[in-house]
Simulated assay, not measured.
Amino acid sequence: MNKVGYAVYWLGCGYVLSHLFLMHDWVQFFDGFSLLCTLVPAVAALAIAGEGITQRFKLSAKIMWVSATLTFVYGAVLTLSHHPFDADGFVMGLSVAMLPLFYALILTLLVAPLVFRTEGNNQ
């Protein structure tokens, strides 16, 4: 049953991500700066020596969420700093500012089963 659950999980994630990226304009979900600010600290955290792979994945996920939150705050401050206030510009700027949180959510959804599978094998 455990393998069936993993298969259903991966199929569900694959369906949702393919629906988001392939059935709609996938370019609207890409921002290079946000992607770099979210991924680079998370990948660097995986290179920490002396920890088990499960601990490194957990630390990487925590660092990824912190960096995504800080990048979101940075984008929100930039969006709110524009004069004069424009409602359309505010909504577009806020949607781009939320992309790092979206990236962190996707990566957490994809890495979570690997972390829990590794934990289950270690016990």
Rank of each mutant, 00 (worst) to 15 (best):
F21Y: 15
L78F: 08
S95C: 10
L78H: 11
V43I: 15
C13Y: 00
V66I: 15
L36F: 15
F90L: 13
I48L: 15
L109N: 00
T79L: 06
V91K: 09
A104K: 00
L78V: 07
L107F: 14
A97E: 00
F33A: 14
P84L: 05
T54K: 01
L36W: 13
R56M: 10
A45H: 09
K62R: 08
L39S: 10
I63Q: 08
M92A: 11
L105A: 13
V27Y: 14
M1A: 13
H83L: 09
V27I: 11
A112H: 02
L78I: 07
V4R: 06
L11Q: 08
G5I: 10
A104M: 06
M1C: 10
M98T: 09
M92T: 09
L101K: 03
A47F: 15
D88C: 03
V8I: 14
I53T: 08
F116I: 01
L20R: 07
T71R: 08
A112C: 01
Q123I: 03
A47L: 15
A45V: 14
V115N: 00
Q28N: 14
D31L: 09
F72I: 06
E119C: 01
H82P: 01
A87F: 08
G32A: 14
G75H: 02
S18V: 08
L17K: 03
L101Y: 01
H19C: 10
T79G: 04
D86N: 12
F102T: 04
V43M: 13
W10C: 04
G5F: 10
A45S: 15
H19W: 12
A104F: 05
L114D: 06
L94A: 06
V27P: 03
Q55H: 07
V77K: 09
F102D: 02
V115P: 01
F29E: 00
Q123C: 05
A49I: 10
L78D: 11
G120F: 07
D86G: 03
L80G: 13
M1N: 05
A112T: 01
F102S: 05
L107P: 01
K62M: 02
I63D: 02
F29L: 04
K58Y: 02
G50K: 07
C13M: 11
I106C: 05
W26S: 14
L35R: 06
L99P: 02
A104V: 03
F85V: 07
W10Y: 09
S81Q: 12
Q55P: 02
D25H: 12
K3C: 10
V115H: 02
T38M: 10
L36R: 12
S60Q: 01
G12F: 07
K62L: 10
T118S: 06
K62S: 03
Y74Q: 07
I63V: 15
L17M: 14
F29Y: 13
A61R: 09
L36V: 13
T38D: 11
A104W: 00
V96D: 00
F30L: 09
A61H: 05
H24D: 14
C37P: 03
V115R: 02
R117F: 03
F33N: 12
H82N: 03
L110C: 11
S60R: 03
H83P: 04
V66K: 05
G75E: 02
A76L: 15
N121E: 08
V66A: 13
